[in-house]
């Protein structure tokens, strides 16, 4: 297979970037999208050019490092997968593929396709935890949790923090990311004591980081590699309402 790649190149956060066109050939359909970038980079290095910088690590869709906006969509034209899980069989031979970084005020670009997602960490630091120190915890089975609840909590907890939700949202809203954590801990008995403070603090930090607000387009759910449901956003809204009103 052959492809034309239009890739966003930007030297650093201070520079202006632009789409640059590259041609790749001898691609097989079972190659992953990142392997195509690997191959392109090998060619660029050979030529003495600067290879395309992109974040990646586990390459099995769980670390959340990779995140690219491929042909106008977070993680490209697949459902329920990260960029590293995108295989070239998802594209037509000869297609032009546009690759951009995740764009949001809360995700400043570091270089090329690499963005700074530390805003997510700061949101977590604001309240995405149960305040329990190491040791002195009760026996694990002392807190029974109905399977149904545990399953829904697990759905929320499966968030990989990649930022696809922010990237896909027309408002660059981080609501799905924040809601996944708020919802997980609101569902579980362990999260009850700090329930109110948590949702208020995490949302305040989210606003502070410059993310937009949710207008319920549900793009986030559609583009989430873990297919996390927007019902978690509804739950967070409810949590927030309850927290503010009581």
């Amino acid at each position: 297979m052959n492809f034309t790649l239009k890739i966003w190149r930007q030297k650093d956060s201070a520079s202006k970037g632009e789409l640059t066109t590259y041609y790749t050939s001898d691609i097989t359909s079972d190659m992953s999208f990142l392997e195509v970038l690997d191959k392109l980079n090998q060619e660029l290095i050979k030529r003495g050019d600067d290879p395309v910088a992109f974040d990646h690590d586990c390459r099995e869709g769980i670390c959340g490092s990779c995140g690219m906006y491929i042909n106008g969509r977070s993680h490209g034209p697949q459902r329920g997968g990260a960029s590293c899980q995108l295989h070239m069989r998802s594209f037509k031979d000869g297609e032009t593929i546009v690759v951009e970084p995740f764009r949001a005020k809360g995700f400043p670009i570091i270089k090329d396709l690499v963005v700074d997602r530390s805003a997510f960490d700061r949101i977590m630091q604001a309240g995405g935890f149960v305040s329990v120190d190491t040791g002195g915890t009760p026996d694990a089975n002392a807190i029974p949790i109905p399977k149904k609840i545990a399953d829904v909590a697990m759905n929320a907890a499966s968030c990989i923090g990649c930022g696809a939700c922010v990237a896909a949202c027309k408002n660059s809203s981080a609501m799905l990311f924040v809601a996944a954590k708020v919802s997980q801990l609101a569902l579980l008995p362990q999260g009850q004591t700090e329930r109110k403070e948590r949702v208020i603090a995490m949302l305040a930090q989210m606003d502070k980081e410059g993310f937009g607000s949710c207008t319920n387009t549900y793009s986030c759910e559609a583009e989430c590699p873990k297919e996390i449901s927007v019902t978690h956003i509804a739950r967070m809204n409810r949590e927030y309402l309850k927290a503010v009103l009581s």
Binding site: N71, G72, R73, V98, K170, S172, S213, T217, Y218
Partner: peptide, 28 residues
């Protein structure tokens, strides 16, 4: 107000943005 805030949340727009693939037009 929200519209302006939301617009400012993405200072640089995408060159290619396929919103239709993930959301209803009515919502946008």
């Amino acid at each position: 107000i929200l519209w302006f805030k939301n617009r400012s949340a993405r200072p640089e727009r995408y060159a290619m943005y396929d919103a239709a693939a993930s959301s209803e037009l009515s919502s946008r």
